[in-house]
Nucleic acid binder design. Structure first.
Lengths: 331, 331
DNA sequence: ATGAAAGCGCTAACAA
DNA sequence: TTGTTAGCGCTTTCAT
């Protein structure tokens, strides 16, 4: 735990000024090559690395791209993998920041404001809801807020996916189909709700308000909503949950209620996070290409950072039905 | 893309000095409560957030824990989820940094040196190989280097896991069993190699050097080694790969060679990353509890950061055999 | 209770 | 070619 060497230590050891060290390290012109050699030798000897913080304070460019998330959960982890792959042979370092500790609401603005213009040259925000703050760097949103904020966006076809999920249940023969909604402030949540309703309408099934619950993508809220829905005497025979985490929680609740899945109750989720396939029984779901989402966002951001105009500033990716073991015809 | 407000903007708008703003924002004593109110009103109005960088430069404490990785690949992504969960109700923000762009070798030292003592209050390093640099903050290593560096460590029982994998193949009836090793600079890789040899020895099978290849966990190296091994006239009937990514690559190579898996060739990996279960055919493997690894590392780090002495500074977690569809008795 | 000023490690003008 | 110096935005003594 000794102190890391600073540029001053290097300068002292090499017998030059800090300015010269800076120039040598960053390959600027105007330094005698033998001086450069001497400085670099000292650098290697001391194991000096410039402080990202200090240099970014001064120079405003860091070679770092930030991915801002509320939390490192399965969804954002997949995004991260995709971003990492897309950037793997760029010259950028990647920094992922989860800054929702404590406050919860408004992490997007807080994180962006704390990092932008200083630590990162560009940002990808995952499911942001509030981004009306001034930014000094280009920003791309993945699966964003349903607001007027007009950030360049990458998302998947939530409406179509919800259509596929609900139709799948209908085709299996279900007609009492519940829906546990997600965060209503996300554009994608609204679209999944709309897809659900549309599929029912197409099949001539009217929406029973008692079969629509709000889960906000939070396990505790999902639990409450699912419990209420499943304790009804006219409970649904199938439920579409707005994401996998919610669906998995419903599977759990069903189990506690003594309901067999998919015997008594079919459940389908959305996302296809790794946990969905691994669950027992394996969760039926609608796959959205999370890694591709991340990769596309990275590419879009890179274009923006180069000051170029991207061919499209709003990318939508297709979804795919993945039936597994939690959906079956009603008993 | 307007400029973010700084503490100076707040000070000017509130008609006070920057020192007062700083005190008000950070809840220091010695500020009239009405002044505090006025300052906070301006803060809210302007949407001011202190720059993480600037404050960390001065104060040396940031409330941020760093996870340093070479890359965001499946293994480190799982670790990240575990760390995130363990820290979800701590007061710390989480920052993950992938800093191996370009340089490759020595990312650990570089990342640590660039961030420590300034941006982060503590660090978790994932599969680090070189950490002989001075750090100003506590560091915990996950699955580290095989060196004298004596960092607090969390890892899984690679030796036992390799034993399980190899025995599984032996029990299926295989005797020509190949091994594609991982990065030889990781302690865990050495242990997997040892476990492989031990299991063979226990079964009275001698190690054929032609059946041991080096993959370094890199797809291109794995491909070369697998190609060479599988083109032999006395090729193995089963291969144990030191991690899943390697195993998956071998499956691919086998396919290109017209070898049926597991008909002509059984393959087993190590890790059980999400991709293993999703592959076709689903990959047999040895599961190491990656999220738990991350969570334990986080807990250990927290203890260290509080200046306490942890009960143990070296944690080893058990592994579990997960037979799936790429292993079968030899034809 | 408030403010002036120093300084964290670094880079970029500008001088020498 | 090299060094001196002024900040970047913030926190923290130390005066006032």
């Amino acid at each position: 735990m000794s102190r890391r060497p600073t540029i001053m230590d290097v300068a002292a050891a090499a017998g030059v000024s800090v300015a010269t060290v800076s120039k040598a390290v960053n390959g600027r012109y105007g330094v005698a090559s033998e001086t450069v050699d001497r400085v670099l030798a000292v650098v290697a000897d001391l194991g000096y690395e410039s402080s990202l913080i200090a240099s970014s304070m001064r120079s405003r460019r860091t070679g770092v791209i930030g991915v801002l998330v509320a939390d490192f959960e399965p969804f954002s982890a997949e995004i991260l993998k995709g971003v990492g792959q897309a950037l793997s042979d760029s010259r950028y370092d990647l920094l992922a920041y989860a800054g929702s500790r404590g406050a919860a609401e408004g992490w997007e603005r807080r994180s962006l404001s704390r990092l932008s213009g200083t630590l990162i040259d560009g940002a990808i925000m995952v499911t942001p809801t509030v981004v009306n703050v001034g930014t000094e760097v280009p920003v791309v949103a993945i699966d964003p807020h349903t607001g007027p904020a007009d950030l360049p966006t990458v998302e998947s076809d939530s409406y179509g996916g919800a259509l596929q999920a609900t139709r799948h249940l209908i085709e299996l023969g279900h007609s009492r189909i519940g829906f546990i909604a997600g965060r209503r402030d996300l554009r994608s949540s609204i679209a999944r709700d709309a897809g659900y309703r549309r599929a029912l309408a197409d099949a001539g099934i009217s929406v029973d308000p008692g079969l629509v619950g709000s889960g906000s993508y939070r396990q505790d809220a999902v639990r409450v909503a699912a419990l209420e829905m499943l304790r009804r005497t006219d409970r649904p025979t199938a439920i579409f949950a707005a994401n996998d985490i919610s669906a998995l929680e419903i599977v759990k609740v069903a189990g506690e209620l003594g309901l067999d899945v998919p015997g008594h109750l079919s459940i389908i989720g959305f996302d296809d996070v790794p946990e969905a396939a691994k669950a027992t029984p394996a969760l039926s779901t609608v796959r959205q290409p999370m890694q591709t989402l991340g990769a596309e966002a990275a590419r879009l951001l890179l274009t923006l950072m180069q000051g170029e105009v991207p061919p499209s500033t709003h990318i939508a990716l297709p979804t795919r039905l993945v039936p597994r073991d939690t959906t079956a015809p009603p008993a």
